[in-house]
């Protein structure tokens, strides 16, 4: 028996979410009285792989194959399903990010294992296997029983604390099966921004809405984000207007994020917007309207004109950071 954790890498490196995933998987393994096995696919250096041991992976499988050159959901499903069988997995755990969402449902069918997507707490019990997840876009939660022997879980980002353990782990090199002739996905172009903090990775996010009035007024938002090492975001109308790029749109139809701190500036707090940000640990709202629904979701608020409040806020943060 084991809990198999698929740990994605980004150009050979792991991220905070990888460690959250391993921490969670290790705890589930403990509940099941078994071992957490981390599976990494693709080229990752030994010292990077060993990091996974610090969060409770008893063993680390490093599956490599020089021919892997594209993310193909069928091929990745085959690789992970193979190791799940080999490791006699009881639970297979992935992240609820783009990659996890692409593979987990296929794995569920391949292994005839019930899937719960976006779990945000440890299982309430393991027999029956009872997990907790968001429903109705964050307007409610549900306790769900997975009835099959093998279970597939994807973990909601930023919902589980990274926990270090003293455990030791062994890295084993294995081969990932890959047959380029049968892989159907071909990449023809990649467009990537570099050097920017990704919205989905950021601990702090500074976001503006229609109350910012125009694209020219974004200066202080960008400045505040830079001072705080934060990512910038916006509401849907802002990206629809073209004031900000589409990648920044958060909400039900945009990105769903869960940073530690979310600044909602000139954002009314429509349910569809909150659906993307309500899992933030803290929300700060700045709005001229004291009755704006965003204040019901926020812990801290300023009733005032963003044009006047923001420059002062930027100054105060600058002072704090000593810049």
């Amino acid at each position: 028996m084991s809990v198999l954790i698929f740990v994605e890498n980004w150009d050979g490196k792991f991220k905070k979410l990888s460690f959250e995933l391993v921490s969670y998987g290790a705890k589930v393994a403990e509940m099941l009285n078994t071992d957490a096995v981390a599976l990494s696919v693709g080229q990752v250096e030994a010292n990077e792989l060993e990091k996974l041991g610090r969060y409770g992976a008893a063993r680390i499988l490093s599956a490599v194959n020089d021919n892997i050159n594209v993310f193909d959901s069928q091929a990745f499903t085959s690789i992970i399903a193979g190791f799940a069988q080999q490791e006699n997995a009881e639970v297979v755990l992935l992240s609820n990010n783009n990659t996890g969402k692409a593979i987990a449902p296929r794995l569920s069918v391949r292994l005839k294992a019930g899937l719960a997507a976006g779990v945000s707490k440890l299982p309430l019990s393991t027999n029956p296997f009872n997990v907790y997840k968001k429903v109705y876009s964050g307007n409610a939660f549900s306790n769900v029983i997975i009835k099959t022997d093998l279970k597939i879980l994807t973990l909601a980002q930023n919902s589980y604390e990274v926990t270090e353990t003293a455990g030791k782990s062994v890295v084993t090199q294995v081969t990932a099966e890959w047959n380029s002739a049968t892989v159907k996905t071909r990449v023809t172009e990649v467009q990537k921004q570099t050097g920017k903090i990704l919205l989905t990775d950021a601990d702090v996010v500074v976001s503006g809405g229609r109350g910012m009035k125009s694209a020219e007024n974004w200066g202080p938002i960008v400045e505040l984000a830079e001072l705080l090492g934060a990512a910038t975001a916006c509401s849907r109308p802002v990206s629809d207007e073209g004031w900000r790029p589409h990648e920044e749109h958060t909400g039900q139809t945009g990105k769903i994020i869960a940073p530690n701190l979310y600044f909602a500036i000139g954002i009314s707090g429509a349910t569809q917007h909150l659906a993307g940000v309500s899992s933030s640990k803290f929300i700060v709202a700045i709005n001229t309207d004291k009755d704006a629904p965003i204040f019901s979701a926020a812990q801290y608020g300023i009733i005032g004109d963003a044009g006047k409040v923001l420059p002062k806020l930027v100054e105060a943060v600058r002072e704090l950071k000593g810049k």
């Binding site: 569920s108 899937l115 939660f141 549900s142 306790n143 769900v144 099959t148 309500s278 204040f295 812990q299």
Partner: peptide, 20 residues
């Protein structure tokens, strides 16, 4: 079905907003 919803919960009410 392979999964079954046992019950639902409402989100915990957030503490009242502190105004600055």
């Amino acid at each position: 079905s392979l999964t079954e919803v046992v019950n639902y919960e409402m989100p915990k009410p957030r503490a009242a907003c502190k105004f600055v």
